[in-house]
Amino acid sequence: MPSLSERASRTGQFLWSGWSGLAGLSVFAAFWQVAHEAYGSFILPSPLETLAAAWALLGEASAWQLLLTTSSRALSGFALAGVIGTMTGCLAGFHPAILRLVQPQITLMLGVPPIAWIVLLMIWFGTGSATVTTTAAVACLPIVFLGAAEGIASRDRLLDDMALSLGMGRVRRLVRITVPQMLNRLFPILVMALGTAFKAAVMAELLANAGGIGEALAVSRSNLDVANALAWILLSVSALLAVEYGLIQPTRSELEAWRHAARPWGVKR
């Protein structure tokens, strides 16, 4: 375990890096403002108007309820895909024959348009949470599977031999040598999968009329209320960012302190 001071300095650097994130967002907001001034409030409300609308939404308890609904659906879909994808991916990584059999099915899953999944799932599960969660899971399952399989298949076998020469048993080798290597590969992919799960969940809600942010977006569209629609988009992105920077990134930096050590100074801060 890294020492307390080391962890504190890492946390400090992490929070400090928020400034650069804010700077990037400001550039984005500037372009947004330019487009707003060119096209007017009806087509594209200004960033400040959108923020005000989002702020107003946050004042309502029902908005929080909707955010929570969508987030929990996206997260349970993500968790489902994470568990199934990682387990089957590891299995396939260890056995090339299984990987070869499963690969075409993954291509198939990636090739089916998400919209088609939603139609099928609506028929099977009706228009409720189950459809939304499953859509999110189906959307991120293939990439998690491939990430885990890659992580296992591309492991450094020389390290395995080294552990064997020290007399480590099969289970200890798996836990101490193979799984950490797999996680190194898997983490960036989990970040991607989480974003995909949120997008798929919102889309499924919109199309299936299943409540949550998606339905709120549908309502804004029918009212031609662009500011409100943008505010909802802003809120769903914020929910995603909150999960990513509150949950995934801290876990990742805990597991990958060594990668941080390898970075040159200018990249670190």
Partner: peptide, 28 residues
């Protein structure tokens, strides 16, 4: 009773400090 191998390459675990790399040879 026991043997150990020093390989041509160091074969250290990149995610562990030198201390932990040395410690992995010790019994649990």
């Amino acid at each position: 009773v026991r043997h150990a191998v020093v390989f041509q390459e160091p074969r250290l675990l990149p995610w562990a400090t030198a201390r932990k790399n040395i410690g992995m040879a010790l019994p649990e």
